[in-house]
Amino acid sequence: MTGNDNRFGVLLFDEGWSELGGALEPYAREGPIGKYLYCRKFEVVGPFVELTFTPAQMHGPVDEETTVWIPTHFIKFVATSSTANEKGMGFV
């Protein structure tokens, strides 16, 4: 699932936050649904999920896109929406 005009909201199982939380801190957000990841690209690559974040989707002085890979067994839920309707998916 990719698309330049889409945004993805990703929830992890508690085990994922427990094991990866420190590494994911620059990418994590908090909202009414709890802690989540909000990214520009989401793609399953074998046993991993590839997540690409824009600088606006990260904390800190990052000025280029960043991609991380997370084991698929940590993914609990994913929602996607066009950038025009990103608030409608409930993550932001």
Results as ranks from 00 to 15, higher is better:
residue 2 T to S: 13
residue 4 N to E: 14
residue 5 D to T: 08
residue 6 N to E: 11
residue 9 G to P: 02
residue 10 V to T: 04
residue 10 V to L: 06
residue 13 F to N: 09
residue 13 F to R: 12
residue 14 D to A: 10
residue 14 D to K: 09
residue 14 D to E: 13
residue 15 E to P: 00
residue 17 W to K: 04
residue 18 S to A: 10
residue 20 L to Q: 11
residue 22 G to Q: 14
residue 28 A to Q: 13
residue 29 R to G: 11
residue 29 R to H: 15
residue 32 P to Y: 13
residue 34 G to R: 01
residue 35 K to I: 10
residue 36 Y to L: 07
residue 36 Y to Q: 01
residue 36 Y to D: 03
residue 37 L to F: 06
residue 37 L to G: 03
residue 37 L to W: 01
residue 40 R to E: 14
residue 41 K to D: 15
residue 42 F to N: 00
residue 43 E to D: 13
residue 44 V to I: 15
residue 44 V to C: 03
residue 45 V to F: 01
residue 46 G to W: 05
residue 48 F to Q: 09
residue 48 F to I: 03
residue 48 F to W: 10
residue 49 V to M: 01
residue 50 E to L: 15
residue 52 T to K: 07
residue 52 T to E: 15
residue 53 F to T: 08
residue 53 F to W: 09
residue 53 F to D: 06
residue 55 P to L: 07
residue 61 P to H: 09
residue 64 E to W: 11
residue 64 E to P: 02
residue 65 E to R: 10
residue 65 E to W: 06
residue 66 T to K: 15
residue 67 T to G: 08
residue 68 V to D: 02
residue 69 W to I: 06
residue 70 I to V: 15
residue 70 I to G: 04
residue 71 P to M: 08
residue 71 P to K: 14
residue 72 T to C: 10
residue 72 T to F: 13
residue 73 H to C: 06
residue 76 K to L: 12
residue 77 F to I: 00
residue 77 F to L: 10
residue 78 V to W: 04
residue 79 A to K: 14
residue 79 A to W: 06
residue 80 T to Q: 15
residue 81 S to V: 00
residue 82 S to D: 09
residue 83 T to Y: 08
residue 84 A to Q: 08
residue 85 N to E: 06
residue 86 E to I: 07
residue 86 E to P: 00
residue 87 K to A: 08
residue 89 M to P: 00
